[in-house]
Design a protein around this nucleic acid. Structure first.
Lengths: 170, 170
DNA sequence: GAGTTTACGTCAGTCTTGTTGACATTCCAA
DNA sequence: TTGGAATGTCAACAAGACTGACGTAAACTC
């Protein structure tokens, strides 16, 4: 199971990129890159009394305006109690609006307010700037590969959520 | 700043992969993939009373045996107090050994015990299995691109830590 | 129409993991 | 040799995740 040479057994194809050493490098790259990925928004959020959880909520409400609480729960993969704490502060601070559903009055549909959009843009710009720099440095071929590997690394549920989101026309 | 068309201004090269939409997809892929990346070890750790922090410590102690606390701090990017709590439990549970330095008695050098190595292997196997599947699905070209983008996404400090680690001969 | 299910909110309590602040020990250099 | 810097430990606290229990309102089902 931990044998670094299994990959080389398959003769014919070159599977050297599947050695344990290559995998470990991939794992560590993922760890360090994720820190870079969140670093810039984290800095902005630290000044207000918000955290990464607020960022995630804001991102996906902006992404899918009018989403219900349940929907957001599924995307974020947290409990409603956890999300609720975050939403409560965002609503209290006037960044998010919660409207009772027309068809189903049990549902709450979530929207960003003007102020919410401003913060979203600020966080988004910071995160995109780094992603853009990384994409540009690496080039289009690399970006395509990056996406392919990430998608293969998701759980089935996540991939479904992600695909649904990706194909949503704003 | 938020103009999705900036990329298209540069005529000649095809920079369509740098549109805001592409960047957003990259950001979301990163978010979902990181969940998948940590999901399997997290499940194992949940059974014991350990968390992701313990996993990270164990990983890097295994990676660089004899590392000092300060060294580990720099790699993990947390405060020494935070790391210390984790280390204390790992040492108490007999997974990690802390030896006073020979040259500098202020330093503590960290090593995995037999039991520590066992847990490390268990966590590693789980995480590598998913990474291996993702790598195999995506293919070697994609993996190279994946690595290139991740490295471009790190901070300079992280890249230094990562490169140093990567080039370390166990 | 009564009973069940669904969607949402909330209170209370716990756990992990991050933070600061205070402190002991050891090393080193002026 | 003494004062500052470096290394690591202890204590207290905060954010954000979790579970469990409960309440309300609306929708669904028989």
């Amino acid at each position: 199971m931990t044998d670094g040479r299994t990959a080389q057994v398959h003769s014919g194809e070159n599977l050297l990129f599947l050695t344990d050493e290559q995998l470990r490098q991939g794992i560590e790259a993922m760890f360090f890159a994720y820190r870079g990925f969140t670093a810039d928004p984290d800095r902005i959020l630290a000044d207000m009394s918000y955290g990464r959880a607020h960022h995630r909520a804001i991102h996906f409400i902006n992404r899918a305006p009018g989403t219900t609480v349940n929907n957001l729960l599924a995307i974020l993969g947290v409990t409603k109690q956890s999300l609720n704490r975050v939403l409560r502060t965002l609503i209290a601070d006037g960044l998010v609006e919660s409207r009772v559903g027309n068809l189903d009055k049990r549902e709450r549909h979530l929207y960003l307010t003007e102020a919410g959009h401003e913060l979203e843009a600020q966080l988004s710009d910071a995160q995109r700037a780094r992603m853009r720099a990384a994409f540009r440095d690496a080039g289009p071929e690399a970006v395509a590969g990056f996406r392919r590997v990430l998608e293969a690394m998701m759980d089935a549920d996540m991939r479904r959520a992600y695909t649904r989101l990706r194909d949503t026309v704003g």
